[in-house]
């Protein structure tokens, strides 16, 4: 464990908690893409099946359980409890255009052709594009609530910190995972546009509205 991975995990946890609290306290999921949240629940489900097969550390197990629990709770709030506030008309990204290519790629490019490894690879690839429905929704509505931008900031920051963690681990441990790194770079690049708007607008107290 290194400081970059730890702050990355805490940033990820902060994003997940911010979103869940925002929806729960405001009793509304307006502006939130339910499709992205379903994709994240799928990412965690396919990645953390090893909860059933191996124990790595209390930290590892605890965080995985929290991530899975919060992501399913968020999906539940959006599609069941607070369904009336779900803005389906703007959440129209065709997720099948993500899942099918990602699923195919996971079969073609992986470290080992075993079920757990294929699912892990699918999860890594899917996570890199899972935010697209949310970013697409913001571009359609033309704006985002400030709390939603904080959620996106921490979510984008987490994988950027993981990139530094992988540089650190390559340098000090000779460890690297090309699949995770390439997907992580793609994932972080997708946030660059948002990061620019977040820094130039939200951090100056303005509302995030598009076109910029």
């Amino acid at each position: 464990m290194n400081i970059f991975r730890l702050t990355g995990d805490l940033s990820h946890l902060a994003a997940i908690i911010i979103l869940l609290l925002k929806i729960w306290k405001s009793r509304s999921c307006a502006g939130i893409s339910g499709k992205s949240q379903v994709l994240f629940a799928l990412v965690f489900t396919t990645r953390y099946l090893d909860l059933l097969t191996s124990f790595i550390s209390l930290y590892n197990t605890t965080m995985k359980v929290i991530y899975i629990g919060c992501s399913y709770a968020t999906v539940y709030l959006i599609y069941m409890k607070l369904k009336a506030t779900y803005d389906g008309n703007h959440d129209t990204f065709r997720v099948e255009f993500l899942i099918v290519p990602v699923g195919g790629l996971a079969f073609l490019v992986n470290h080992d052709f075993s079920p757990l490894e294929i699912l892990w690879t699918f999860s890594i690839y899917l996570e890199s594009v899972a935010i697209l429905p949310q970013l697409f929704m913001i571009s359609k509505t033309g704006e985002a609530e400030t709390i939603t931008t904080h959620y996106l900031f921490f979510l984008g920051l987490y994988r950027a910190l993981y990139l530094i963690n992988w540089i650190w681990r390559f340098y000090f441990e000779g460890f690297f995972d090309m699949i995770a790194i390439v997907a992580g770079v793609v994932q972080t690049i997708l946030y660059c546009d948002f990061f620019y708007l977040y820094v130039t607008k939200v951090l100056k107290g303005k509302k995030l509205s598009l076109p910029a």
Binding site: R5, D9, H12, D50, S54, I56, S57, N60, M63, K64, Y67, H111, W120, Y162, N165, G174, F175, F176, D177, M178, A180
Partner: peptide, 10 residues
């Protein structure tokens, strides 16, 4: 090592 055998990252 090409990849850590143990998946110790989240």
């Amino acid at each position: 090592a090409f990849r850590q055998m143990e998946k110790d990252e989240l």
